[in-house]
């Protein structure tokens, strides 16, 4: 639990500064938060390889109550075994995409990945249903009914599926995003 930020060398910081949308303070803060979560005492924290498991990661207060926390971790994880664990660099990636200065292009790209539950590159009906369920359902009795869900998905597809192939692909999604100006300000996680 080495909470000191000196482990992150200056070169590393400036490199990360160049590769992400984060400022120096944000990177150092991210490192601090990351090392607080990092529990593995056997090995010291290495920004590239040391990973925090998904369960632990989702305990981060900024992610804890996010309905997409698992998807977010999985999307940004570069883990070989696909367990959704995050290395520090993955974590920086996450923060960069969710930062204030990230471009709309980046944000919508990652939003698409997060919403694309089965990772098949398009938002099909199942993905959309999952998305809506993530954002609405709390319990069985307040859930949208089957009929409403169908109708809602139809509306969504009608609205965004420009080429009428029954799914929303990335460019269609980005088109939608470009027309909803709230997205940029709301797609944001700040440490």
């Amino acid at each position: 639990m080495g909470g000191n930020t000196s482990q992150l060398s200056k070169e590393n910081v400036s490199e990360y500064q160049e590769l992400t949308f984060l400022t120096k303070q944000e990177i150092l803060l991210a490192y601090k938060r990351f090392s607080e979560l990092y529990e593995d005492r056997r090995s010291s924290l290495d920004p590239r390889t040391s990973r925090i498991p998904l369960q632990k990661m989702t305990e981060l207060p900024e992610l804890r109550s996010n309905p997409f926390k698992h998807r977010i971790c999985r999307v940004f994880s570069t883990s070989e075994v696909k367990d959704g664990s995050l290395s520090f660099e993955d974590f920086l990636d996450l923060l960069s995409a969710f930062s204030d200065s990230a471009t709309l292009e980046i944000k919508s790209h990652y939003a698409f990945c997060i919403f694309d539950d089965d990772n098949d590159g398009t938002l099909n009906r199942k993905d959309l249903e999952k998305l809506i369920n993530h954002l609405t359902s709390e319990s069985e009795d307040t859930k949208l009914t089957r009929n409403e869900m169908e109708q809602l998905i139809n509306n969504i597809l009608e609205e965004s599926d420009i080429d009428k192939d029954g799914t929303v692909n990335l460019s269609e999604f980005q088109h939608v995003i470009s027309r909803s100006p709230d997205f940029v300000s709301s797609f944001k996680i700040v440490l």
Binding site: L135, I177, S180, D182, S186, I189
Partner: peptide
């Protein structure tokens, strides 16, 4: 509907508020 879905606040950190 899209507009509503896209404007989900990822900022929200409060359990009750979510």
């Amino acid at each position: 509907a899209w507009q509503l879905l896209c404007s989900w606040d990822f900022n929200m950190t409060n359990e009750r508020a979510v």
